[in-house]
Design a binder for these strands. Structure first.
Lengths: 358, 358
DNA sequence: GATTGACGTGCAACCGGTTGCATTCGATAG
DNA sequence: CTATCGAATGCAACCGGTTGCACGTCAATC
């Protein structure tokens, strides 16, 4: 019963009330409905409050109003470079409405995600689940209890924000076609990924329109390592350019090509996806923007709209992407490149935080 | 008063109690002190609870016990690649003790940070502040109210976890000396940064021990752009190797050197700091590990220890670093490199999330 | 057969706010 | 001078749990 069992107790509303010679209610109103009180009373109370370092207790307020002022954001892997910009944007959007945000790391496990959501449920007004690992069923169950917004997960009936790579990928195809490429490769990501399906379809469609030959090479997991590993398959197709599922894979491919003396972009062109590495690589990577920050902002904004009881119903927001041309694309060489020397074993540890973010 | 004003209300303890034909207290104890109740009673209650989807209300519990089960983690910029691994590790460490973590993004502003801390105070049991922008005074004030752990901020009396780059930097110096370099440059970060002070001092000391000449070149902000910008200054020193304040700066330097036809590592060697880019660059960057994940874990673990009332007092944990040798360091050329052509204007946008993380 | 305990459960106060309603008081209207 | 009304404030119930204490029951003990 006794709260805090001696731990440092923050000043309460009663403390303020006592030294101000008023009742709890008055102090409460001074903070929530100042207009209802005398101007000098409000001033005095606020003065006293700040002098003794009083801050309204978020928890107690939540209990009586049902407005927790908190939202939860759950991602599979905080360290996956896809997410930090999204998290940052979502956090700042929530902050604009004075919401605090819980961050959950599901560690790519649906059990963990389920546990987190349950823990969050009773102290948040709503949640944003990114690339959720839960079943549609569980998601629906949770959505019954609290407003829920999904990112890169398409469950009918649940508001969701999706990054549609189609446009960006189409731009990439057009870009390569314009440069004179005739045969390209799509290095695919996880089959279960919604993003991967989008991208592959867009590649196929774009290639048909531009009369390009297209090969598909599968990289089971999107990572530096697996990109590096599939380079022989890529070269075997005889293509002169590749579009990779994501930047990490593209990066691995670049390394694998360099290992074989194939230079980028002179001998081979590469396009990534997600713009996760920025211009940090050399040569800097041509890639498809993912606008993950806008995604984060949009998802949080959508959630806050729902909380503001502005009905949102079955929202399905898609964000377009665009091509970011940097320095890994150029006209094809006269002859398609071929392996010059045998591939060395992979020496370099994979980058942390890889995996299928989307 | 009426909570939820019609919003989806979660089932409460009373609901369970009613259908189980017992009192609130009994339901409560079924969850918190099952041993005090009859075995079959507990079983029946848990059964009913899960059947109607009841989960104990975190908020209400917190209010009466003072144990919020929450902690807060505040960083200047989530998107700065220094932080995601730290956040991830801290989050998972907290999760091991069933704590939920609030994430705050101070956006490099002490006002924002102060606001966040105040908002968090009343719903967390403790906080971790990373690279805090607050004054010592404010930090002390907050620490009076709740257990507080600092990361990369050295305020006597407040428990803190510091990444000490000295060892790693010393290893880097030894590494360069062994390769045959005689004259190196330290490209410094923000003067106010604790980490920068550590690193510069370590460079100076190490250089003296190995009888190397050392120059200092100042990059005001640690970023890709500013690294690229200081390349002329670096070359002007006549040095054959550089140690940069962080990886982003090092990356910019690499690009700047390439722009001038100076090849890395054949003509010039580069060492970064923080190991933030992993092996993603080409050539992959030799750098000093920052172990930011261990830092996050250590800080959170320290905080949880404090909460467990295991007194921690004035803890000051320092984490050592080590050199990660990759492919940007090699013996110096016979003659020191010189600019071959004029530098092109910077075309490439700076990487998001830069800034002095430490 | 009455006493004593252990055990299982209910009662009610409390955590720190919020809010509908009652109350007080001065001012304006009648 | 009194009735009326609005503004300012207090009272007390409530949000959903936790927990000290009291109560009732039944078995073991004397």
């Amino acid at each position: 019963m006794t709260a805090g069992k001696g731990r440092k107790d923050l000043p309460t509303m009663m403390d303020v009330a006592r030294t101000a010679g008023v009742s709890k209610s008055t102090v409460s109103r001074a903070f929530t409905q100042p207009g209802m009180l005398g101007a000098e009373t409000v001033a005095r109370i606020l003065e006293i409050a700040s002098s003794i370092g009083y801050v309204p207790n978020h928890t107690a307020r939540a209990l009586s109003t049902g407005r927790y002022g908190n939202v939860a954001l759950v991602v599979p892997d905080v360290a996956n470079p896809f997410f930090p910009p999204l998290i940052r944007a979502a956090q700042m959007e929530a902050d604009r409405s004075d919401f605090c945000v819980f961050l959950g790391n599901s560690d790519e496990s649906w059990r963990q995600e389920d546990k987190l959501v349950d823990r969050f449920l009773s102290q948040v007004e709503g949640l944003v689940l990114c690339a959720s690992r839960l079943t549609d069923e569980r998601i629906r169950a949770h959505a019954l209890k609290r407003p829920l917004v999904l990112v890169n997960r398409d469950v009918p009936g649940i508001p969701r924000v999706l990054i549609d790579s189609a446009i960006g990928v189409r731009e990439a195809i057009a870009h390569l076609a314009e440069l004179g490429h005739k045969h390209i490769v799509y290095v695919s990501g996880p089959a279960s990924s919604w993003s991967n399906q989008q991208r592959r379809a867009a590649v196929r469609l774009g290639a048909r329109q531009h009369r390009l030959e297209v090969s598909i090479v599968a990289a089971r997991v999107p990572s530096y390592e697996s990109g590096r590993a599939v380079v022989p398959d890529i070269l075997a197709t005889g293509a002169t350019a590749a579009i990779a599922f994501d930047d990490l894979t593209a990066q691995g491919i670049m390394t694998g090509l360099a290992d074989r003396g194939v230079s980028v972009p002179a001998d081979f062109s590469i396009v990534g996806c997600d713009d996760v590495l920025g211009a940090a690589t050399y040569p800097s990577l041509t890639t498809v923007s993912n606008r993950s920050d806008e995604t984060g902002r949009a998802a949080m904004s959508l959630l806050l709209d729902m909380l503001g009881s502005r009905a949102v119903g079955d929202a399905r927001v898609t964000l377009d992407t665009y091509l970011v041309v940097r320095n890994t694309t150029a006209p094809p060489p006269n002859r398609p490149p071929a392996p010059a020397r045998a591939a060395p074993p992979p020496l370099i540890p994979p980058r942390k935080g890889e995996g299928d973010a989307n």
